[in-house]
């Protein structure tokens, strides 16, 4: 039986060998390349991310840009998956008055909720709308005694009792996020939060959840400083694009193989208007 290595297996092996340092004192430069021709726009990344990070309604660390152009029936549709770009020159971090946003392990832009004062200046500075504000306590109806439909549905309290959840358990507790110093298993209102390439998974040698969820292998993740990494292989083969390159933020999320399925009738060298 020949051994088959999937892309995920290869990348996971790379991640397992990473030597990450919580203070960013490592020689790792984590990058993600998104192959737009492989991406089908299924949204599994977004759902996986929301599950992994217990995201509140209205908050999405993994999202997408959708652009349509032209007039019907000549219409183009472009789908670009998005997440925090973990910018090399991160405007969110350079503007943060308390250094709550900083360059952490593997060059990831990390956020410490204890240091955050909730001034929201990072949200003003981020060109990509990738910093999210927690407007209220997580799962505010966790302790409610009111049913959505009276005598029709269970109240959250009844549900907790039924499935045997400790009544005092904090809402939205995610033990996965207990791994690192800089992520909290739950979250607090008033502070911001952002994608961290699932640093809690990286610390356990696992791939970011969106990478693992992608059914089309459209997300390639790894160390840019490792010449043999899968990321370098792809970046060496294609000329990558980044979002809003003109802002000079040097994103670490890069896009290759911009999908353009259309074609047009080419000119035949005949004199054009104005010739």
């Amino acid at each position: 039986m020949t051994e088959h290595h999937s892309l995920d297996d290869e990348m996971r092996t790379e991640v397992e060998q990473l030597q990450l340092d919580e203070n960013g004192d490592d020689d790792v430069d984590l990058n993600m390349v998104i192959d737009l021709q492989s991406c089908t726009g299924c949204g599994a990344c977004n759902i996986g991310c929301a599950q992994e990070n217990n995201l509140q309604e209205g908050v999405a660390f993994s999202s997408r840009i959708v652009e349509t152009d032209g007039q019907f029936p000549n219409v183009s549709y472009e789908y670009t998956p998005t997440l925090c770009n973990q910018c090399e020159d991160a405007p969110c971090a350079s503007g943060c008055p308390t250094s709550a946003l900083y360059e952490g392990e593997g060059g990831i832009t990390m956020h410490d909720p204890d240091q955050c004062i909730g001034c929201k200046y990072c949200m003003i500075n981020c060109p990509y709308d990738e910093i999210h504000l927690h407007k209220e306590d997580p799962h505010p109806r966790w302790d409610d005694d009111e049913a959505v439909i009276d005598e029709g549905t269970a109240t959250p309290t009844e549900l907790k009792a039924e499935v045997g959840v400790d009544g005092d358990a904090p809402a939205y507790y995610n033990p996965n996020r207990e791994v690192g110093e800089h992520e909290h298993p739950t979250r607090f209102k008033g502070v911001v939060e952002k994608c961290t390439f699932c640093v809690h998974r990286l610390n356990k040698g696992e791939l970011p959840r969106c990478v693992e969820e992608c059914p089309c292998d459209a997300r390639i993740f790894g160390d840019r400083n490792d010449p043999d990494s899968k990321v370098n292989e792809i970046l060496g083969r294609y000329n990558p694009d980044v979002l809003k390159e003109e802002e000079g933020t040097e994103p670490k999320v890069k896009y290759v193989r911009d999908y353009n399925g259309g074609s047009y009738e080419r000119g035949k060298g005949e004199p054009a208007l104005g010739d």
Binding site: S99, D114, Q115, C116, I117, G118, K120, K189, G190, V191
Partner: peptide
Amino acid sequence: SLGHQQGMIHL
């Protein structure tokens, strides 16, 4: 207007 005044010592 700050969301998390407790963090202000970090200024």
